[in-house]
Computed example of a mutant assay.
Amino acid sequence: MDIQDLLQRFAECLKIQRYSPSSIKNYQSNLVLFFNYISKQFSCIEEIEISHIENYIFWKINNGKCSGTHQKMILVSISKFYDFVLGIKINLNHLYPKRSEIKQPNFLTLKEVKQLIEVTENLKHKCLIMFLYSTGIRLCEVINLKTTDIDLKNRTIFIRQVKDKKERKVMLSENLVVYLMQYYLRYKPVNYVFEGQNKSQFSGRSVQQIVKQSAIKSGLKKTVSPFILRHSFAVHLIESGIDICCIQELLGHNFLKSTESYTLVTKAAKSPIKSPLDTL
């Protein structure tokens, strides 16, 4: 069986395990890069040893092509492939990064978010940006949102979380309702809230381009994406005094530690500590 057949078998195993299409794609792409590297040395997958996986990880790190998070994803992809397809359990624990990377999330200020929304003239595009910011939902969640998930009466949105099959509710902004009603009247979505041509599901790539183009038009120098709007939603809620456990629930985080990263930003911004320069 050649590599393509093995990758296809791997995808089938992941589908049976109910992994999402995006996760399957990520696992496969990591394996393709790994096999491309290994194929220069071996013609048979059975010849690959742990030391060769170690060399690959070292090569990725040494060439600056591998963050700690990416390193973990590569190792998970390889481990699952060996387990699901070859029926071999390999121990790669020694290759996982031991030090956690603590990164402060990028975000927009309230003024910048307002600027982004105001320069977006297309009604569908404006609603998309307002949706992403006002709810903090993920890109995959907004494109999977159905018209039946919107409860105008109770001002709530039902999120069918794609990432790990959980469900939650988030608030529906009063300001968003105004634009949403106009959007419904003009575009008349049938199944999904945001639809492309022929009433098909809107693509994630299109959403990313919409946000990017609006950011360019607004003159913002920051990199802006749907994920940055989600970050901004969380940071602004923390700044307004909302309990972090409530924010965790709204974001759909499994662990509070994931939500706590946003407090790093607000603590730095609101710190009462003055620079020693100010005392001179």
Rank of each mutant, 00 (worst) to 15 (best):
Q213A: 13
G241D: 10
P276Q: 09
K169E: 07
P272D: 04
I273W: 11
V162H: 10
F233L: 04
F10G: 00
S200W: 14
K80R: 09
K199E: 04
I50D: 06
V76T: 15
I61T: 06
K153P: 13
E101M: 06
A269N: 15
M1C: 09
W59C: 13
T147K: 03
S206F: 10
H94Y: 12
Y27G: 03
L176K: 00
Q248E: 08
D149L: 02
L92S: 06
K274C: 15
I117G: 02
V190Y: 04
K111S: 12
L123W: 00
D149N: 09
Q41C: 14
L6F: 09
L250P: 02
C246D: 11
S23A: 14
F202A: 08
A234T: 04
R186V: 00
N36C: 07
I273T: 10
I24N: 06
K188L: 00
H94W: 08
G136P: 02
T263C: 09
D164M: 14
L33A: 06
R155K: 13
K65S: 15
F84D: 04
E141C: 03
Q201P: 07
E260P: 07
Q28P: 13
S29H: 12
L220A: 05
N55H: 07
V190P: 08
S173K: 02
T156V: 12
Q28T: 11
E47M: 07
L128P: 00
R9Y: 14
Q4A: 14
I244P: 01
V85D: 00
L229D: 01
K103C: 12
I48D: 01
Q28V: 13
L123N: 00
I50Q: 07
L132H: 02
K217Y: 03
T223S: 11
Q182E: 00
T279A: 13
L110E: 08
C140E: 10
